Amino acid sequence: MMMEFQNLQDAERLALAVVNTIHDPLLVLDSKFCVLAASRSFYETFHVVPEHTIGRFLFSLGNGQWDIPALRQLLETIIPAQTAMDGFEVEAVFPSRGHRIMVLNARQVVFEDKANAMILLAFADVTVGRAIQREKDALLRRTEELLLQKEILLQEMQHRVANSLQIIASILLLKARIVTSEETRRDLHDAHQRLMSVAEVQRHLHVTHGIDQILVGSYLSTLCDSLGASMIRDAQPIDITTIGDAGQIGSDQAVSLGLIVTELVINAIKYAFPVFQADAQVLVNYTSSGADWSLIVADNGIGKKGDPATRAGGGLGTAIVQALAKQLGARIDISNNVTGTGISITYTGITSTVGPA
């Protein structure tokens, strides 16, 4: 329901009260862009007084900061045609305020007789907001630069690690060729093989660099394919089968898991088939349920007919696997019988121990 006023003065007083209540600066202009009224916030924001504002031409206010050709064109042409202007940005130096960024919005008010028209011109100071946004943008750019630097440094570190591992491996092989002790030669070859297993894990995780969660099935499959290609000889073909579900683990856990699989697969290839066996097979099976998971590495080799200590990975191999399993909080169980050897690593979210052999 529209309010009815007894006289024009009452309506003017209400309009002026509304104008002065508005937080953002506001001007009321006539059709010639002369100031008819100004809000209290306009005087406070731009540090001007009514006698230097009322009746003055908009484009001559202050030091002429509003005398902008684009703004003049909008007010003189677009406002009469469209009755509104939104989001016009002015960046200028204002007396007593310094450099500010203002966003202007305008509305044309046409009265019933259409003889006179007014324009309401509102000002929003967005200087602080724009400064904050610039700071955010600069921080984002800096963050992106730091991430890029981190990426480059990590790639360089991985490259150096790979080169260092290769140099050490070459030195071990060189030493193995010149020593006279068979036992020392065997130890050097074992050290070389374990070093290469570390290199394999490092190389395969490098291709998933930057990904926090690793898809275990494909990761172990790629790893075992590489191990088989480098270690299996034509004299004793061995089928390495990898089965893995869609489970994922963190990249830090993947390192330990990959080293465990590498150690167990290498030992199966080296010790499970001392004599030719046509159906020689090593099975790597990974299953998961929520946060719990189970890894089984089994072969159909000599089993109990071999040395259990050697078949379980030998003294050093057992220590490596146990240390890595402990790091993961997982349990080890060894099954050694006439049909082969199976070693399971199980994580259930509960502190685990090494099970019986």
Rank of each mutant, 00 (worst) to 15 (best):
N105K: 04
K136N: 12
H189I: 14
R130M: 12
V109H: 14
A117I: 11
Q82Y: 04
E200C: 04
Q193K: 13
T143E: 09
R185S: 08
I119M: 05
G217V: 02
A106Q: 02
L165Y: 06
M157A: 15
T143G: 02
K175M: 09
P80S: 14
T127A: 11
L223G: 01
E89L: 07
K150Y: 08
E135F: 00
V216D: 00
Y219I: 02
L220W: 00
R177L: 12
I132G: 05
I78K: 14
V109S: 10
D190H: 06
T208S: 06
L75K: 04
I78M: 05
I79Q: 05
F88H: 01
E91V: 12
A122R: 07
S181A: 14
E156I: 06
R194I: 09
H159M: 13
I167A: 15
I78H: 13
R107A: 08
P95N: 03
Q193G: 06
M157S: 13
G129R: 03
V128S: 15
S181G: 06
Q149G: 10
D125C: 09
V216A: 00
D86I: 05
V90L: 09
F123E: 03
F111Q: 05
L188A: 03
S164R: 03
V201N: 03
L104H: 03
A106R: 01
S181C: 07
D113I: 11
D86A: 07
V198D: 14
R194M: 14
Q158F: 13
V161L: 14
A84C: 06
G210F: 08
A124G: 11
V161Y: 13
L75A: 00
L165V: 02
R194F: 04
T83V: 10
L173V: 05
I178W: 12
T143R: 11
H159A: 11
L220A: 05
H209I: 12
S170C: 02
R185L: 02
H192A: 11
V161G: 02
S96R: 09
M157G: 10
V201L: 00
E151V: 13
G87W: 11
A106D: 00
L147G: 12
E182F: 02
R142I: 10
V207M: 03
